[in-house]
Amino acid sequence: MPVSAMAAWYPHGTVIAPHRHRRAQLLYAIEGVMTIESATGSWVVPPTRGVWLEPSVEHSVKMSGDVKMRTVFVEPGAAAHLPSRSCVVEVHSLLRELILSAINVPLDYATGSRDDHLMCLLLAELNAMPLLPLYLPWPSDIRLRSVCQMVIATPDDNRTVGAWAKTLEVSEKTFYRWFQRETGVNFGAWRQQARLLLALQRIAHGEKIIAVAMDHGYTSQSAFTAMFKRHFGVAPSAFYS
């Protein structure tokens, strides 16, 4: 059938090893936060959001908190306007209810049945999913990846671009152009995005905003909140509401 769905439950810290699917996939968690990683980047997926993975993309999944995952698989070519690239999407209330209903639909539902109509509506709503800025591109060069891994490990490290360039024994200008070419964004924007996505995982566990801000390189809660609102459109305290 063109659309199918399933449910799974994973405890905190579970890692699903790299794998791929022939079909496109929407990964969604009604509880917990998932981090999906591929060779070209990573996506942080909190509740109310999902990640759309194009067919045959190799990816791994890491669980933060106990995760109740719901997955929708879509045959290639099932609809004309599905995202052509992997991305994070908003799961609004109607789409959420359709996903929760779809997991109870058998794989061999009959054409023209109620189950068929439900899955067709689900497919229509997948066509209209709003895309969200929750993607972190990764460079392919191993030296730049090592810098990115250090940023992820110590997000409060405020070293300048020049200091990072020095660790790779290149000029600041060379580092800047190199990073931009590999990721499509400059290093400052990449670090800001990495910090915000890491912060989302902490906020999802109910940690205090001031502690999250300080641990991610911000000098104050207000500075972090202002950056968060510019990026996501809402304050950190309202993101999961």
Rank of each mutant, 00 (worst) to 15 (best):
Q180L: 15
W178G: 11
G206T: 06
Q193P: 04
V45W: 01
L122D: 02
Q221W: 01
Q193F: 05
S241D: 14
A204V: 02
D215T: 14
L200W: 12
L131C: 04
R202P: 03
S140N: 08
P130T: 03
S38D: 01
P83C: 09
V74S: 10
H92M: 14
T219R: 15
W190Y: 11
G77Q: 05
I16P: 08
Q221L: 09
L197N: 04
L98Y: 03
G162N: 10
S60H: 05
Q201M: 03
G77W: 11
A165K: 06
R85D: 07
D108P: 02
S220W: 04
H81C: 14
V74Q: 03
A199I: 02
R85F: 00
F228Y: 01
P18F: 11
H12T: 10
G162P: 11
L197M: 03
A39I: 02
N158E: 13
P133S: 10
V15I: 08
F187W: 00
P55N: 07
L198W: 03
A128L: 14
M6I: 13
T225V: 14
V44G: 08
L121A: 03
I152H: 13
P2W: 10
V67R: 07
P106R: 03
A24V: 11
A199Q: 08
A102R: 08
E125V: 11
S113A: 13
A39G: 04
A189S: 07
P18K: 12
S84V: 14
A124F: 08
T183E: 03
